[in-house]
Amino acid sequence: MKIEKTIRDAFSDQLVINERVKVQVESGRNLFDENWHFVSRLKSDESFALKVEAGLCDENLVIDDFYACTWVVRNSSEIAKATKIVEDNFDVVARRPLASDKTTNRPTDFQFDDLRMYVRLKPGYAGSTEIHSVIFEIQIKTFLQHAWGIATHDLTYKTDEVSWARFRVASQIRAMLEHAELSIERFESLAGSQIIAKEFDDFVGIHEIIVQLRSRFVPAALPKDLQRLAKVIGSALRTLGVTVEQCMKYLDEESNIGRGVNELNLSPYSIVIQAVLARHSFKVADLLSKAAKSRYFRPIRLSKSVNVPASLNSLVPKVITTF
């Protein structure tokens, strides 16, 4: 694209100072939640020229989004938190939309209206006072909004083909994602709806194992992902033909004599299974027969540190494998 000299010169001037702003902004990324996603960009000369020629600049050909960055939060409930961080650490000049509870879109419209805040660096940021006058854009959006933007932007905005149908499809996708966002925000209340508030035996068992583990182990001994631990324990108990109630009884018996939860060198999984192996009266022949007949049978994996009673040695490695 041919670009007039006046615009090229204005672009070059703004590129230099906005590169310095970019460095300062991105040095403070630790202000935000580590689970959020961050992207940024500087305007290209072509995009800058088109914006200037559209009149979207001031009398000095300065635009307010030469540098722009986006913080992508997990869901809509975190937008307010991100907004507060921006307000506390930057000088907010303007925002669009003007308020989170106001919109210019009709209820039948599904256009781009993600939160955009136009800000300046506060004096506390390093560098000359010149960079503190530069206005730049911070967008705050959810992962679903971000995905919609990535998937549809070049298909609808940066294309030679102007098509009502293309924009219609993009809007339909946006509407579906907004419905998904609403479902996420109201997750707990929707999960309590009578339509889907049903019990599933596998989940009931997993929940029961989690409750029982929490009541016996100190929090530091348990993983953050308790659901996965409970699933692995549940699978092992099904293989061994032991109920959750029996399992916890055995664990308590082992704990009462100084083993069980008092073990220092075993994981919670190993402690639980070791207690079952030590206390349960197994029908070894039945377990071996089950392992031989079922093509979907999955042996229990155990650390070699787990004490397997000599009476159960015949289960290794058909029912129990060690690592």
Rank of each mutant, 00 (worst) to 15 (best):
V134T: 02
Y296T: 02
F282P: 02
A230H: 12
L312W: 04
Q227S: 13
A310E: 15
S303W: 05
L182V: 04
M117S: 06
R96K: 13
K22D: 12
A147E: 09
K158P: 03
P219Q: 10
S128R: 03
E53V: 10
Q246T: 07
A165H: 07
L288V: 05
L42F: 08
D160H: 09
E137I: 01
N60Y: 00
R279M: 11
V232H: 13
A292M: 01
F32D: 00
N30K: 11
A10M: 07
R29V: 13
V169E: 02
D64N: 08
H179P: 03
S281T: 14
T103E: 11
A220R: 09
V16D: 13
A230W: 13
G28K: 14
Y157M: 07
S270D: 15
Y118I: 06
T322N: 04
F32E: 00
Q274I: 11
L312A: 06
F48E: 02
L213R: 05
F110H: 14
L190P: 05
S100K: 02
R228F: 13
F90Y: 05
L98W: 02
S267C: 02
Q24S: 14
P223S: 10
V86W: 04
A180R: 04
S44K: 10
I209G: 08
E34R: 02
W148I: 00
A49K: 05
T129Y: 06
S215M: 07
D113R: 10
F11M: 07
I79C: 05
E199H: 11
N75D: 04
D88L: 01
N256W: 06
K224V: 13
V93E: 12
Q227W: 13
A49Y: 11
E53K: 14
I17D: 14
R259V: 07
T321A: 07
T70M: 02
R20Q: 15
A165Y: 12
P223A: 10
L177R: 02
T159L: 05
G55I: 08
R41M: 05
S281H: 12
K102P: 04
E4I: 07
I138N: 00
G260C: 08
I210L: 09
E199G: 08
P97C: 08
T6G: 12
R216G: 08
S133D: 14
L213F: 09
D160S: 10
A54S: 15
S133R: 03
A165E: 15
F112Y: 15
E263S: 04
D113N: 14
